[in-house]
Amino acid sequence: MENIILLFDHLKVFFAVLFFVLGAIIGSFLNVVIYRLPRHESLVFPQSHCPICGHRLSTLDLIPIFSYVALRGKCRYCGAKIPPIYPIVESLTAILFSLTYLKFGLTLLSLKYLIFISVLIVVSFIDLFEGVVFDIVVIPAAIIGLIFGVFGNLKDTILGIIFYAIIFFLIITLSKLFYKEGGMGEGDLTTGTMIGAFLGFKFGIVAFILSFVIGAIAGILIMLISKKGGKTEIPFVPYMSIASVLAIFFGNYIFAFYLNLF
Protein backbone atom coordinates (compact mmCIF):
# COMPACT_ATOMS: atom_id res chain seq x y z
CA MET A 1 0.00 0.00 0.00
CA GLU A 2 2.83 2.37 0.92
CA ASN A 3 4.54 1.63 -2.41
CA ILE A 4 1.36 2.51 -4.31
CA ILE A 5 1.03 5.81 -2.41
CA LEU A 6 4.71 6.58 -3.04
CA LEU A 7 4.31 5.82 -6.75
CA PHE A 8 1.27 8.09 -6.90
CA ASP A 9 3.22 10.92 -5.26
CA HIS A 10 6.10 10.45 -7.70
CA LEU A 11 3.73 10.55 -10.66
CA LYS A 12 2.09 13.69 -9.30
CA VAL A 13 5.46 15.42 -9.00
CA PHE A 14 6.43 14.21 -12.48
CA PHE A 15 3.26 15.59 -14.05
CA ALA A 16 3.57 18.84 -12.09
CA VAL A 17 7.06 19.34 -13.53
CA LEU A 18 5.82 18.31 -16.97
CA PHE A 19 3.06 20.92 -16.84
CA PHE A 20 5.60 23.51 -15.66
CA VAL A 21 7.77 22.80 -18.71
CA LEU A 22 4.70 22.81 -20.97
CA GLY A 23 3.61 26.12 -19.48
CA ALA A 24 7.04 27.65 -20.11
CA ILE A 25 6.91 26.54 -23.75
CA ILE A 26 3.37 27.88 -24.18
CA GLY A 27 4.46 31.08 -22.42
CA SER A 28 7.20 31.52 -25.01
CA PHE A 29 4.55 31.42 -27.75
CA LEU A 30 2.33 33.80 -25.78
CA ASN A 31 5.24 36.27 -25.81
CA VAL A 32 5.18 36.13 -29.60
CA VAL A 33 1.44 36.85 -29.61
CA ILE A 34 1.80 39.70 -27.10
CA TYR A 35 4.56 41.34 -29.12
CA ARG A 36 3.35 40.77 -32.68
CA LEU A 37 -0.43 41.02 -32.49
CA PRO A 38 -0.53 44.77 -31.68
CA ARG A 39 1.94 45.34 -34.52
CA HIS A 40 -0.23 43.33 -36.92
CA GLU A 41 2.62 40.95 -37.66
CA SER A 42 2.36 37.28 -38.54
CA LEU A 43 2.61 34.94 -35.56
CA VAL A 44 4.53 32.43 -37.70
CA PHE A 45 6.78 34.40 -40.05
CA PRO A 46 9.45 35.64 -39.82
CA GLN A 47 11.11 33.34 -37.31
CA SER A 48 12.05 34.72 -33.91
CA HIS A 49 14.71 37.41 -34.13
CA CYS A 50 16.25 40.17 -32.07
CA PRO A 51 14.07 43.30 -32.45
CA ILE A 52 17.20 45.49 -32.26
CA CYS A 53 19.73 43.88 -34.61
CA GLY A 54 17.32 41.63 -36.50
CA HIS A 55 19.53 38.54 -36.12
CA ARG A 56 17.61 35.27 -36.26
CA LEU A 57 17.67 33.55 -32.88
CA SER A 58 19.01 30.02 -32.58
CA THR A 59 17.39 27.19 -30.66
CA LEU A 60 19.71 27.85 -27.71
CA ASP A 61 18.46 31.44 -27.59
CA LEU A 62 14.84 30.34 -27.37
CA ILE A 63 14.83 27.96 -24.40
CA PRO A 64 12.13 29.42 -22.12
CA ILE A 65 13.42 31.09 -18.92
CA PHE A 66 16.82 29.35 -19.16
CA SER A 67 18.06 31.31 -22.19
CA TYR A 68 17.29 34.65 -20.54
CA VAL A 69 19.24 33.65 -17.43
CA ALA A 70 22.13 32.15 -19.40
CA LEU A 71 22.42 35.23 -21.61
CA ARG A 72 22.07 37.53 -18.57
CA GLY A 73 19.17 39.32 -20.20
CA LYS A 74 21.12 40.40 -23.30
CA CYS A 75 21.08 39.52 -26.99
CA ARG A 76 23.90 37.10 -27.84
CA TYR A 77 24.63 38.96 -31.09
CA CYS A 78 24.35 42.69 -30.39
CA GLY A 79 24.31 42.88 -26.60
CA ALA A 80 20.99 44.72 -26.46
CA LYS A 81 18.97 44.21 -23.30
CA ILE A 82 16.13 41.71 -23.53
CA PRO A 83 12.97 43.05 -21.88
CA PRO A 84 12.24 41.12 -18.66
CA ILE A 85 8.64 40.69 -19.81
CA TYR A 86 9.72 37.56 -21.71
CA PRO A 87 10.86 35.45 -18.73
CA ILE A 88 8.05 36.92 -16.62
CA VAL A 89 5.38 35.67 -19.04
CA GLU A 90 7.11 32.29 -19.41
CA SER A 91 7.50 31.84 -15.65
CA LEU A 92 3.96 33.00 -14.89
CA THR A 93 2.48 30.63 -17.46
CA ALA A 94 4.63 27.74 -16.23
CA ILE A 95 3.63 28.26 -12.59
CA LEU A 96 -0.08 28.60 -13.36
CA PHE A 97 -0.04 25.52 -15.61
CA SER A 98 1.59 23.47 -12.86
CA LEU A 99 -0.82 24.75 -10.21
CA THR A 100 -3.78 24.00 -12.47
CA TYR A 101 -2.70 20.39 -12.80
CA LEU A 102 -2.10 20.07 -9.05
CA LYS A 103 -5.61 21.34 -8.31
CA PHE A 104 -7.66 19.75 -11.09
CA GLY A 105 -5.53 16.83 -12.28
CA LEU A 106 -5.64 15.35 -15.77
CA THR A 107 -9.21 16.41 -16.47
CA LEU A 108 -11.24 18.30 -19.04
CA LEU A 109 -11.59 21.07 -16.46
CA SER A 110 -7.81 21.45 -16.40
CA LEU A 111 -7.73 21.82 -20.19
CA LYS A 112 -10.49 24.42 -20.00
CA TYR A 113 -8.62 26.49 -17.44
CA LEU A 114 -5.24 26.13 -19.18
CA ILE A 115 -6.76 27.66 -22.32
CA PHE A 116 -8.49 30.33 -20.25
CA ILE A 117 -5.32 31.25 -18.36
CA SER A 118 -3.33 31.49 -21.62
CA VAL A 119 -5.88 33.89 -23.09
CA LEU A 120 -5.95 35.96 -19.90
CA ILE A 121 -2.17 36.36 -20.00
CA VAL A 122 -2.23 37.52 -23.61
CA VAL A 123 -5.06 40.06 -23.23
CA SER A 124 -3.69 41.34 -19.91
CA PHE A 125 -0.20 42.16 -21.09
CA ILE A 126 -1.40 43.61 -24.39
CA ASP A 127 -3.86 45.84 -22.53
CA LEU A 128 -1.19 46.76 -20.00
CA PHE A 129 1.37 47.86 -22.61
CA GLU A 130 -0.79 48.85 -25.58
CA GLY A 131 -4.10 49.80 -23.96
CA VAL A 132 -6.15 47.73 -26.40
CA VAL A 133 -8.10 44.46 -26.39
CA PHE A 134 -8.30 42.44 -29.59
CA ASP A 135 -11.68 40.87 -30.29
CA ILE A 136 -9.89 38.37 -32.52
CA VAL A 137 -8.59 36.85 -29.27
CA VAL A 138 -11.43 37.19 -26.77
CA ILE A 139 -14.43 36.38 -29.00
CA PRO A 140 -13.10 32.99 -30.21
CA ALA A 141 -12.05 32.32 -26.61
CA ALA A 142 -15.59 33.07 -25.43
CA ILE A 143 -16.91 30.56 -27.95
CA ILE A 144 -14.45 27.97 -26.65
CA GLY A 145 -15.64 28.67 -23.11
CA LEU A 146 -19.23 28.17 -24.24
CA ILE A 147 -18.32 24.86 -25.88
CA PHE A 148 -16.77 23.66 -22.62
CA GLY A 149 -20.01 24.71 -20.93
CA VAL A 150 -21.87 22.20 -23.11
CA PHE A 151 -19.84 19.44 -21.44
CA GLY A 152 -20.32 20.94 -17.98
CA ASN A 153 -23.00 23.24 -16.62
CA LEU A 154 -24.40 24.95 -19.71
CA LYS A 155 -27.01 26.92 -17.76
CA ASP A 156 -24.36 28.37 -15.43
CA THR A 157 -22.17 29.20 -18.44
CA ILE A 158 -24.94 31.05 -20.26
CA LEU A 159 -25.89 32.93 -17.08
CA GLY A 160 -22.24 33.94 -16.67
CA ILE A 161 -22.12 35.33 -20.21
CA ILE A 162 -25.40 37.22 -19.75
CA PHE A 163 -24.33 38.59 -16.37
CA TYR A 164 -21.06 40.04 -17.68
CA ALA A 165 -22.61 41.29 -20.91
CA ILE A 166 -25.38 43.19 -19.13
CA ILE A 167 -23.36 44.53 -16.20
CA PHE A 168 -20.49 45.79 -18.35
CA PHE A 169 -22.85 47.27 -20.93
CA LEU A 170 -24.46 49.28 -18.12
CA ILE A 171 -21.10 50.31 -16.66
CA ILE A 172 -19.76 51.40 -20.06
CA THR A 173 -22.94 53.35 -20.82
CA LEU A 174 -22.82 55.15 -17.49
CA SER A 175 -19.08 55.85 -17.75
CA LYS A 176 -19.58 57.49 -21.14
CA LEU A 177 -22.26 59.72 -19.64
CA PHE A 178 -20.13 60.89 -16.72
CA TYR A 179 -16.62 60.79 -18.24
CA LYS A 180 -15.64 62.46 -21.49
CA GLU A 181 -12.36 60.53 -21.51
CA GLY A 182 -11.40 57.25 -19.91
CA GLY A 183 -13.88 54.95 -18.27
CA MET A 184 -14.50 51.43 -19.48
CA GLY A 185 -14.51 50.48 -23.13
CA GLU A 186 -15.87 47.79 -25.39
CA GLY A 187 -12.72 45.72 -24.79
CA ASP A 188 -13.71 45.33 -21.15
CA LEU A 189 -17.16 44.17 -22.28
CA THR A 190 -15.88 41.48 -24.65
CA THR A 191 -13.25 40.36 -22.13
CA GLY A 192 -15.89 40.20 -19.41
CA THR A 193 -18.16 38.13 -21.65
CA MET A 194 -15.28 35.74 -22.28
CA ILE A 195 -14.64 35.48 -18.53
CA GLY A 196 -18.31 34.74 -17.95
CA ALA A 197 -18.15 31.95 -20.55
CA PHE A 198 -15.26 30.24 -18.78
CA LEU A 199 -16.17 30.88 -15.14
CA GLY A 200 -19.94 30.73 -15.33
CA PHE A 201 -22.30 32.71 -13.12
CA LYS A 202 -21.16 31.65 -9.63
CA PHE A 203 -17.41 32.09 -10.06
CA GLY A 204 -18.07 34.97 -12.47
CA ILE A 205 -19.62 36.99 -9.66
CA VAL A 206 -16.62 36.22 -7.45
CA ALA A 207 -14.22 37.39 -10.17
CA PHE A 208 -16.32 40.48 -10.89
CA ILE A 209 -16.25 41.66 -7.27
CA LEU A 210 -12.58 40.80 -6.82
CA SER A 211 -11.60 42.69 -9.99
CA PHE A 212 -13.00 45.94 -8.61
CA VAL A 213 -11.42 45.38 -5.19
CA ILE A 214 -8.03 44.65 -6.74
CA GLY A 215 -8.42 47.50 -9.21
CA ALA A 216 -9.32 49.97 -6.47
CA ILE A 217 -6.36 48.97 -4.30
CA ALA A 218 -3.92 49.01 -7.22
CA GLY A 219 -5.35 52.28 -8.53
CA ILE A 220 -4.84 54.03 -5.18
CA LEU A 221 -1.28 52.73 -4.92
CA ILE A 222 -0.44 53.75 -8.49
CA MET A 223 -1.85 57.25 -8.01
CA LEU A 224 0.07 57.69 -4.75
CA ILE A 225 3.32 56.53 -6.32
CA SER A 226 2.93 58.41 -9.60
CA LYS A 227 1.51 61.52 -7.87
CA LYS A 228 -0.82 62.15 -10.82
CA GLY A 229 -4.00 62.14 -8.80
CA GLY A 230 -7.16 61.06 -10.58
CA LYS A 231 -5.68 61.57 -14.07
CA THR A 232 -3.84 58.26 -14.03
CA GLU A 233 -5.28 55.89 -16.64
CA ILE A 234 -5.42 52.31 -15.44
CA PRO A 235 -6.21 49.40 -17.80
CA PHE A 236 -8.84 47.21 -16.17
CA VAL A 237 -8.35 43.91 -18.01
CA PRO A 238 -5.26 42.89 -15.96
CA TYR A 239 -7.30 43.24 -12.76
CA MET A 240 -10.10 41.19 -14.27
CA SER A 241 -7.56 38.52 -15.17
CA ILE A 242 -6.00 38.42 -11.69
CA ALA A 243 -9.47 38.16 -10.18
CA SER A 244 -10.38 35.36 -12.60
CA VAL A 245 -7.30 33.34 -11.66
CA LEU A 246 -8.12 33.78 -7.97
CA ALA A 247 -11.68 32.63 -8.71
CA ILE A 248 -10.34 29.51 -10.44
CA PHE A 249 -8.23 28.43 -7.49
CA PHE A 250 -10.13 29.89 -4.53
CA GLY A 251 -13.63 30.54 -5.87
CA ASN A 252 -15.35 27.97 -3.67
CA TYR A 253 -13.64 29.24 -0.53
CA ILE A 254 -14.42 32.88 -1.33
CA PHE A 255 -18.03 32.08 -2.16
CA ALA A 256 -18.45 30.04 1.04
CA PHE A 257 -16.87 32.83 3.09
CA TYR A 258 -19.28 35.35 1.59
CA LEU A 259 -22.32 33.17 2.36
CA ASN A 260 -21.17 32.70 5.94
CA LEU A 261 -21.30 36.44 6.49
CA PHE A 262 -25.09 36.32 6.38
Rank of each mutant, 00 (worst) to 15 (best):
I172R: 13
E233L: 15
S211P: 08
G182F: 07
P235D: 03
G251K: 05
F236E: 03
I220M: 14
S244P: 09
K155N: 01
T157S: 06
I172E: 08
L221I: 12
Y179T: 13
V245M: 04
G187S: 11
K228M: 06
L174Y: 06
I220Y: 12
S226N: 14
G229P: 04
V213F: 15
A197S: 15
F169W: 11
T232V: 15
L189A: 11
F255N: 12
F178T: 15
E181D: 07
L224Q: 00
A218L: 13
I234C: 04
S241A: 13
I195L: 14
L177F: 13
Y258T: 09
L210R: 00
E186Y: 15
I172W: 12
L154C: 03
Y179D: 12
V206Y: 05
F236N: 01
I217S: 05
T173E: 03
L246W: 01
L170P: 04
L210G: 02
T193E: 05
F203K: 15
T191R: 02
G229L: 09
I242M: 11
F257I: 06
V237M: 09
L246F: 00
A207L: 06
M194W: 08
F249T: 07
F255Q: 14
Y179H: 12
G229N: 00
G185M: 14
E233I: 15
L224W: 04
Y258P: 09
L154F: 02
A243D: 11
F163W: 06
I205C: 03
L246N: 05
T191E: 03
I222Y: 10
I209C: 12
I161M: 06
I161Y: 00
L174P: 00
I234N: 05
L174E: 01
L210D: 03
F163R: 01
I161T: 00
F255A: 12
K228I: 07
L170N: 02
S226E: 14
S226H: 14
M194E: 08
I172V: 13
I209A: 12
